Structures are given as C-alpha cells and as structure tokens.
Amino acid sequence: MPTLPISLVIITYNEAGHIARCLDSVPFAAEKIVVDSGSTDDTVAIATRHGAKVVQQPWLGFGPQRNFATTQATHDWILVLDADEYLSPELAAELERRLPTVMAGAAAVGILRRSTYYMGAPMRWYRPMVGERMARLYHRGRARWADVRVHESLRWEGSTVDFAAPFHHLHNPTLVHKQLKVLRYAELKCRDWLEKGKPVRMWQLPLVFIAAFLKDYLLRLAFLDGWRGFAVAHTAATYAAYKRLRYFEMRRNPDSVALAQAELIRYRLER
C-alpha cells in the first residue's frame, strides 16, 4: 500500500500482547514511532519487527510523554493510538482516501470514533464506549497535549474534520486489570491536585459517588448493557470517590505520597 506523509505515534510500557495489531492496522503511515518507557517484556522487539522506530524515554506522565513523542515524528501530521487500540479496516480505508485532502487544508484536528470491547465483547449502548468522539489525528503545529499526569486531552486552535468509521479499543482484559489501572490513575490525579493546592471537600464524597453512578448507569445508558453496564458505572463511581479519599489522605499525611509511590513501583504499577 502506498504510504502517506503521516506519523503513527504510540507510547508503550509492557504492551507485547497488543503492539503488533496496533502497528499493523495503519499500513498507510510513512512512519511508525513507539516511545517506550522501559518495557520488561517483548514490546520493543515486536514493535521493531513490525516496522516501528523505537525511542526510549523514562516516564514523564501521560501528557508530557505524548508531547515528547510528538517531537520524535518526522511528519507534521500525527496519528496517535494506544497500544490496545487499532484501526478497523473501514477506518484505515477512509483515512487513506481522505487524508491527502485533509492534510492539504487548514484543519488542526481529525476526530475519530472509538468503539470499545469490554469483558470480551463490544459495548452496545453505553455512550462513552460506543462511538466516543476522540481527537487522535492532528497537525503538531496547531495542537498540543495538556501537560498533566493523567487524563490528558488534546488542545488546539482551528477547525476539525470528522471521520465516520470506528477504531477499536480492547478495554482492560479483566476487572483486575481495570482496578489496578484505577489505583494508578487515581494516584496520578491526586498528585496533580496536590501540586495545584486543590481544597479538600470531603462533604462532597457521598454525592460524588451517587452522581457518578447515576450519570453513567442512567444518563449514559449503561443499564442497557446489563451487568457489564452495572460494572462500568460502579467502577466509575468508585474511582470518583476513591480519588477524593486518597487526596484527603495525602493532605492529612504528606508522608503517604512517597510511601504509596514506593509500593506502586514495587508492584510495577509506577514507572
């Protein structure tokens, strides 16, 4: 397949089970870059075999790591995927057909739609996992990732272009994987709050849990996906509540920040 002047950029850490499928799903990219933060499995070797240039970079946080990865690209137009994501054949064909026109224009960002597999099957109703709109294609001179440790988002100036076909996300393989990720993400978010001096408002905790559960379960239609939907809503509500409990502990006992970090490193949840 002829290539287009676009760089596929992926950040990785121990993604040997996913990286090949992700890389192979973008056959039209002239360049494929994997920025790895010290994988101990076969991620680097597999990525290299599948045509990627691998750059080693100690972990900076999600936003800074993505911004660093952008600087490693040769081309101005960047397509960002996570290792557990991959383009559908339909989206690959749509991108190959439309990208020359998009890249010749003044748009800053391309909006892609993500379809998520959860507990081994695609979600059918839960809105954030069905056709979720995500800014994953961008011109690096017109867009930049927010410099936050977690829950990073792309910031841009200019117009956007929408693509119709989906890309796929293989959400955490098990609830164990999900809970470990929740633990790590909550820790990173709380450190951001600590740096910014966010006030502690523990009286909000019960309301936050209830509101987060009802928002996902009812308003976002998780209930239509049965018990899988209940699991999604419950996990989201637990995450929202736990972040506030953990932040309360950080403020009350500052020593807990370093102690928790050491424990996360011990179990390879922190890089």
Rank of each mutant, 00 (worst) to 15 (best):
residue 108 A to V: 01
residue 55 V to H: 00
residue 127 R to L: 15
residue 74 T to G: 11
residue 27 P to T: 09
residue 108 A to W: 05
residue 34 V to A: 07
residue 86 Y to C: 10
residue 166 P to N: 01
residue 132 E to A: 13
residue 63 G to Y: 06
residue 71 T to V: 10
residue 83 A to Y: 00
residue 57 Q to D: 04
residue 35 V to H: 06
residue 46 I to G: 00
residue 99 L to W: 07
residue 158 G to L: 06
residue 33 I to A: 05
residue 57 Q to G: 04
residue 165 A to P: 14
residue 86 Y to S: 04
residue 69 A to I: 02
residue 88 S to K: 02
residue 85 E to C: 13
residue 105 G to C: 05
residue 113 R to D: 12
residue 44 V to D: 08
residue 41 D to C: 02
residue 118 Y to S: 01
residue 39 S to H: 02
residue 134 M to S: 12
residue 52 A to Q: 02
residue 156 W to Q: 09
residue 112 L to W: 01
residue 45 A to H: 06
residue 121 A to R: 14
residue 152 E to H: 13
residue 148 V to A: 07
residue 131 G to Y: 10
residue 92 A to D: 08
residue 54 V to C: 09
residue 54 V to K: 02
residue 67 N to P: 11
residue 156 W to F: 15
residue 157 E to H: 13
residue 65 Q to A: 13
residue 105 G to E: 09
residue 67 N to V: 11
residue 83 A to M: 00
residue 121 A to Y: 07
residue 138 Y to E: 07
residue 73 A to S: 13
residue 135 A to F: 04
residue 117 Y to F: 15
residue 104 A to S: 11
residue 79 L to Q: 03
residue 141 G to Y: 11
residue 155 R to K: 14
residue 45 A to M: 09
residue 39 S to N: 06
residue 129 M to L: 14
residue 62 F to P: 00
residue 34 V to M: 03
residue 40 T to M: 12
residue 40 T to F: 10
residue 112 L to P: 02
residue 129 M to C: 14
residue 107 A to I: 06
residue 116 T to K: 03
residue 159 S to H: 12
residue 102 V to M: 06
residue 153 S to Q: 15
residue 62 F to Q: 14
residue 55 V to S: 01
residue 77 W to C: 02
residue 150 V to M: 10
residue 33 I to V: 15
residue 30 A to P: 00
residue 99 L to K: 09
residue 153 S to D: 14
residue 50 H to G: 03
residue 104 A to W: 00
residue 106 A to Q: 15
residue 55 V to L: 04
residue 116 T to L: 11
residue 116 T to A: 13
residue 134 M to L: 14
residue 128 P to K: 08
residue 73 A to G: 07
residue 155 R to C: 15
residue 80 V to N: 06
residue 156 W to C: 05
residue 155 R to F: 11
residue 143 A to F: 12
residue 121 A to H: 09
residue 114 R to P: 08
residue 103 M to S: 05
residue 122 P to C: 00
residue 33 I to P: 00
residue 137 L to T: 00
residue 72 Q to K: 08
residue 131 G to K: 07
residue 100 P to A: 12
residue 106 A to Y: 05
residue 29 A to P: 00
residue 162 D to K: 02
residue 165 A to C: 14
residue 80 V to D: 03
residue 160 T to G: 09
residue 76 D to E: 13
residue 35 V to I: 13
residue 148 V to K: 04
residue 77 W to V: 06
residue 33 I to F: 05
residue 77 W to L: 08
residue 165 A to I: 06
residue 76 D to H: 14
residue 158 G to I: 06
residue 100 P to F: 08
residue 104 A to V: 02
residue 161 V to A: 09
